[in-house]
Design a protein around this nucleic acid. Sequence first.
DNA 1: CGGTATCCCCGAAGATACTG
DNA 2: CAGTATCTTCGGGGATACCG
Lengths: 127, 127
Amino acid sequence: MSTYCKFETALDILVGKWKPVILLRLLANGTMRFSELQKSIPDITKKMLTQQLRELEYHDIVHREVYPQVPPKVEYSITEYGKGMTPILQAMSDWGAAHVAHLDELYGKNSSEGAFLVPVDEQAEFD
Amino acid sequence: MSTYCKFETALDILVGKWKPVILLRLLANGTMRFSELQKSIPDITKKMLTQQLRELEYHDIVHREVYPQVPPKVEYSITEYGKGMTPILQAMSDWGAAHVAHLDELYGKNSSEGAFLVPVDEQAEFD
DNA sequence: CGGTATCCCCGAAGATACTG
DNA sequence: CAGTATCTTCGGGGATACCG
């Protein structure tokens, strides 16, 4: 379990191809159904969405509310504890943005060629 | 290049199995030779060490100083720009530590069974 | 609708050997 | 000493099918 560095613990929560996106969606939209999440993240598979959500749930970052009815309905949201992450998330986001600028400065903007194909549509925060 | 989330940029720099450890070593010790780094991180291979260092160098986080002599001598250190990361690193570390406590609270300390086999030896900061 | 269960692939990381 | 070069392994993640 290589526990000689507590800050890798923080990383573990953000790592996994989809966790950042999921977190961002939930923070922006508040409460979302499984299918809403899936629609809002075009390329994710059910398997991945489920898996990442379960990990976030284990860490008490995401809350999973099951409505026992047919057809099933499951809603996800950020826990109160999870909201405590926002400052760090925000800090990382800000630093990331600044860093992109720094890289541009160092290597020139041409390095970001065809990027921004994704239209920035509905990102409420942390872009 | 999936650039719809600038904070993944921040993650990229910390991700990679060894980047956190390397960063911590360099922050703690200031300037280190390649071999010093390798010795201080027992399980890393030359290949991995080189690769991760190069990526950090590209991002202007780590400085690489080559002394043209035989046998070669190469020293690595954190750049001034790189030092600007410390607040976030510190924040993540703190949050990580708190989170470990939170998990203990939720699931009990027994979940950390055999951990801490590594003797905590020389971690100057961010533990 | 909100998931599991399987199978499979590819790229990150390990092992080993060689070099200026 | 500080790396490359090459080969191999391993598991995260994708595709697809099925289920309560």
